[in-house]
Amino acid sequence: MTTRPPVPPFTTVEQARAKVQAAEDAWNTRDPERVALAYTPDSVWRNRDRWVTGRDEIVAFLTDKWKREQDYALRKELWGFRGNRMAVRFQYEWHDADGRWWRSYGNELWEFDDEGLMRRREAGINDVEIAEADRRIFGPRPEEERDQALPF
């Protein structure tokens, strides 16, 4: 059985932040196969208005997402945690095929199994078009910016 530390129950802020940072780091690779390994084989997602179930669907979903959302770069922030659940807020920036830049804002609810794999993810996301000059997320988060709060 695969274990993805830290594992629940999450009892300290440091543990919870480490889990959030690990998720941010993985998503910033834009590698659907790698990202999918952090989820249970039967993981269930609600992403915006779409339901995704299982690793194969996660890989297909992320492959399509990162074809559309080009130069995707993400930041996540711990909002709260208890036991095997977390609330996270996030922002990411990307551009579409026409070169328009977007910042996507959202919140996620996460539930983990005993091995630290995510078995449930619910995400609400809103997109705001931005000027390229207004970008503030450029690739993976540098070490010196970890644990910094996201701006509004």
Rank of each mutant, 00 (worst) to 15 (best):
R119H: 10
D31I: 04
T29K: 10
F10S: 08
W27Q: 01
F61C: 07
E57V: 01
T53V: 05
E145L: 15
A16E: 08
D49M: 10
E24D: 07
D113K: 03
D98C: 00
Y39N: 03
Q70P: 04
K65D: 08
R4M: 10
V88N: 03
E93W: 02
P9Q: 07
R89H: 15
Q21D: 09
V128P: 00
R135E: 03
E115D: 15
G139R: 12
A73L: 10
M1I: 10
E24T: 04
N47G: 02
A16F: 05
R30Q: 12
V52N: 01
P9S: 04
Q15A: 14
P142F: 09
A38M: 13
Q148I: 06
T29A: 07
R34I: 03
A73E: 07
T63I: 02
N126Y: 14
R50K: 15
Q21K: 12
A38K: 01
R136M: 11
F81Y: 15
I130C: 07
P41V: 07
R50I: 10
A38T: 03
M1A: 15
E122G: 01
S104D: 10
E132I: 01
P32F: 04
V44I: 08
A131V: 01
H95Q: 12
A26R: 07
S104A: 15
A22H: 08
F81E: 06
G124H: 09
V59Y: 10
Q15W: 07
A36Y: 10
A97G: 12
M118Q: 09
A22Y: 03
D134Q: 13
K67V: 12
W110T: 01
N84G: 05
D42V: 05
G99C: 07
W101N: 06
D31E: 15
R85D: 05
E33F: 02
W45Y: 09
A149C: 05
D31S: 11
S43P: 01
K76T: 06
R121P: 00
G116S: 06
V88F: 04
E77K: 10
V128C: 06
R85I: 05
Q21M: 12
D147H: 12
D49R: 13
V52A: 00
V35C: 08
D64P: 01
V7R: 11
F81P: 12
N107I: 08
A16T: 08
R121M: 06
D98M: 03
V13W: 00
R103F: 02
K19R: 13
